[in-house]
C-alpha cells in the first residue's frame, strides 16, 4: 500500500489574464490510501492544483503522474477514470434530472452496460444513504443531500482517488458532518485515496497529512499536529485557528505556562486536569 499514487513534480500554472503564477514549481507525492488535506486562503491556488491533477487544466511546466502513468492528452481520459471529484457548489454539478440518473451520468460516459449500471447506481446510492431518494429531482434535495449524491456519482465509477474541492464549504453544519463522516469511511474502510481541499479545521484534522499552499507555493507538508502548532498564523493560511490554540493563548494572558506543542481538545482537557491536580 506504500506505493505512490500521485506524483507531482515542478508543477507551474498561470491563468491567461493574470500576471502572477497561480501555482509555482510545486512538488508533492501522495501514497495510495492516504488522506491529504490541502489548505490555503481563497485564491491561493488550491483548486488550481486539483484541476491540474485531473487534467482539467494544462500545466505550463512540470508533470503529474497518476498510478505511474504520466498525464498527457493521450492518457487523459484513462487517468480521469482513476479520479473522482466533488466540487464546491452542490447545484452546479448535478447533471441528471433526478438522483439516480445523476449517479448514472459518469457510468454512461464510460459506456457501462445498462444492467451493470443499475446495480452500481443502487449500491453507490446505498453507501451514501440516498437510495430512498433515487427518484427525487435536485430541487427537492438539501445541499448536503446533493453533495451525497455527487459523492455517490464518484463511488459508482470506482476510482482510486477522490478529490473534494471545498465540497463542504457551502453546507450547514449537519450536512458538513455527514459528508466528512462519509469521506472518513471511504478512506478507512474502502481504501480510497482522499485529497480534501478545505477551510474546515475538523476536516483537516482527520487527514494524515496537511499541505499548506500560499500564493501558489507549497509552504508546509506535514502531519496535522505539526501544522496546527502554527497557532494564530494558521488563519493566514486559510484555516481557522484550532480551539485549543485559541484557549492556550487566552490562558497565557493570566501568566500560566502552557505547553508549546499542539494539543487536541481532549489533550487540552487532560493537561488542565493534570495541572490542577499538581497544585
Amino acid at each position: 500500500m506504500e506505493e505512490p499514487i500521485i506524483e507531482i513534480s515542478d508543477l507551474s500554472f498561470k491563468y491567461p489574464q493574470q500576471k502572477r503564477e497561480a501555482l509555482s514549481h510545486l512538488d508533492l507525492t501522495v501514497t495510495s490510501g492516504e488522506w491529504v488535506a490541502v489548505i490555503g486562503h481563497n485564491g491561493s491556488g488550491k483548486s488550481t492544483l486539483a484541476k491540474l491533477v485531473d487534467g482539467l487544466l494544462v500545466p505550463e511546466t512540470g508533470t503529474v503522474k497518476i498510478a505511474g502513468v504520466s498525464l498527457t492528452s493521450e492518457t487523459l481520459w484513462d487517468i480521469r477514470k482513476n479520479i473522482g471529484m466533488v466540487f464546491q457548489n452542490p447545484d452546479n454539478q448535478f447533471v441528471g434530472a433526478n438522483v439516480e440518473e445523476d449517479v448514472a451520468f459518469g457510468l454512461e460516459n464510460q459506456g457501462v452496460p445498462r444492467e451493470q449500471m443499475i446495480e452500481r447506481v443502487r449500491s453507490a446510492l446505498e453507501s451514501v444513504g440516498m437510495w430512498d431518494f433515487a427518484q427525487h429531482e435536485p430541487a427537492r434535495l438539501s445541499g448536503g443531500q446533493k453533495q451525497r449524491v455527487a459523492l455517490a456519482g464518484v463511488i459508482a465509477l470506482r476510482p482510486k482517488i477522490i478529490i473534494m474541492d471545498e465540497a463542504t464549504s457551502m453546507l450547514d453544519p449537519e450536512g458538513r458532518k455527514e459528508i466528512i463522516q462519509l469521506i472518513k469511511n471511504l478512506n478507512q474502510k474502502n481504501g480510497f485515496t482522499v485529497i480534501s481541499i478545505t477551510h474546515d479545521i475538523e476536516e483537516a484534522s482527520l487527514a494524515e497529512r496537511v499541505v499548506v499552499i500560499d500564493d501558489g507555493v507549497l509552504v508546509q507538508n506535514d502531519k496535522p499536529e505539526n501544522v496546527f502548532q502554527r497557532g494564530a498564523a494558521l488563519i493566514e493560511s486559510g484555516l481557522d485557528i484550532p480551539f485549543s490554540e485559541k484557549l492556550k493563548n487566552e490562558i497565557k494572558n493570566y501568566g500560566i505556562e502552557v505547553p508549546q506543542e499542539y494539543l487536541t481538545e481532549k489533550g487540552m482537557v487532560d493537561w488542565l486536569c493534570q495541572f490542577i491536580s499538581k497544585k
Binding site: F87, N92, V95
Partner: peptide
C-alpha cells in the same frame, strides 16, 4: 454563465466527451 462553466468542468471531470460510445440509463 458561472453555473454553465462549473457544470462544464464537472461534466468533463466525470468523463463526458460527447455522445460517442455512451450507454443510456434511462430507457
Amino acid at each position: 454563465f458561472n453555473r454553465a462553466e462549473d457544470l462544464a468542468t464537472a461534466m468533463e471531470a466525470r468523463g463526458y466527451r460527447g455522445g460517442e460510445g455512451r450507454t443510456k440509463y434511462r430507457v
